[in-house]
Design a protein around this nucleic acid. Structure first.
Lengths: 200, 200
DNA sequence: GTCTATAACCGGATAGAC
DNA sequence: GTCTATCCGGTTATAGAC
């Protein structure tokens, strides 16, 4: 592992946990087992290092969303793919949602730029809904509300992990992990039933 | 309005927007129209001032949750009351969810302490579910998942406001506000349908 | 109680030896 | 490339006049 990778790994860990202002270059250096000066040698400034970490994380997420829309033949497919991808991503990058959400309140412009750059095919998604509603296989629902409902139920449990774990599971780490594992098999039927898909 | 109240109002505004580390005592002083020294005269330190704001916000939220459980005769009641209260709270304190979530990652202990102190009656809620499942009026669902689903769909749209507004509504503030207004009439039927309540 | 001025500290950034 | 030592700006906190 090169020093640069070492630094990036350390920065990811610290930034993600404490955000931009909450993090200290010293802490990142300690975590990487090197000294502060070297951080500046590799990445001119704290800001630059942070941006690198940030963009890197966000760019892992978006292609999944895109793919789940493009692969889908109907809204039912979409619900399945989308939730599956998102939960998969969360498993690999559990820090990402909180990180993005935190930084978006500091400065939305960067994030919005990245997302817009991706150009998500919402029109295709809308036509999937229209088609299924017309066919009577689902109840009418507004695209925006459906999207927000799904994303909420997938992301919120990780964002609010400390509260959920403490309040619902008596701070038992294993119970919380089990809960997360169950989400896929709970959320998908929940959504499908909610939009009126016949389940068996 | 006393100076102390002036400071608290200013601190609320600044802390809530920028978090503990992101906020500057100078900015709070300016916002309150006084000088830095006075902040320390009233509240010994930044940390103390922050804690005051924090606890105050959280304590407004919890009684609502409690009430919605106690008032309910069945799970259907609960879904209605709970969502209604939460959305009401959000209208008054749109900053609170993000604030709480942000701070919980800095130091969960304080928050958990406050929540535990409240002693939420989850057992009563569980028995409401059991009763309705036994009566065949809803499909079986695990309490924890139901709670998380509901809270997610209510809180996430406000927490993620900057993304949602930008990505789904082309940064149109009014469209986003309308969307929030619609949430109540969307989320309640969504949940009820999802748990198998007959809707007409 | 409220102010101005300043102390004390901290953290990002740089210089320069190796 | 990596280190130690240091600078410098900014922020919290305090002293002391009014």
């Amino acid at each position: 592992m090169t020093t640069e990778e070492l630094i990036l790994a350390a920065a990811r860990k610290v930034f993600v946990q404490k955000g931009m202002e909450g993090s200290r270059m010293q802490e990142i250096a300690d975590e990487a087992g090197i000294n502060k000066a070297l951080l500046h040698y590799y990445f001119r400034s704290k800001e630059k290092l942070f941006e690198q970490i940030f963009a890197e994380g966000l760019k892992q997420l978006l292609p999944k969303v895109q793919l789940s829309i493009e692969k889908s033949e109907g809204i039912c497919d979409f619900v399945n793919f989308f939730i599956e991808y998102y939960l998969e991503m969360i498993k690999e990058l559990p820090y990402l949602p909180h990180f993005v959400l935190h930084e978006i309140h500091r400065d939305p412009s960067k994030i919005v730029e990245i997302i817009k750059g991706q150009g998500l095919p919402f029109t295709r998604l809308q036509s999937l809904i229209d088609k299924d509603v017309a066919a009577g296989s689902i109840k009418p629902i507004q695209l925006e509300h459906l999207m927000v409902n799904i994303v909420s139920m997938v992301l919120f449990p990780v964002i609010a992990k400390p509260i959920i774990q403490a309040v619902l599971f008596g701070n038992n780490e294993i119970k919380y992990a089990t809960f997360l594992e169950e989400r896929k098999s709970v959320v998908i039927p929940f959504v499908l039933q909610a939009i009126g898909v016949k389940t068996n």
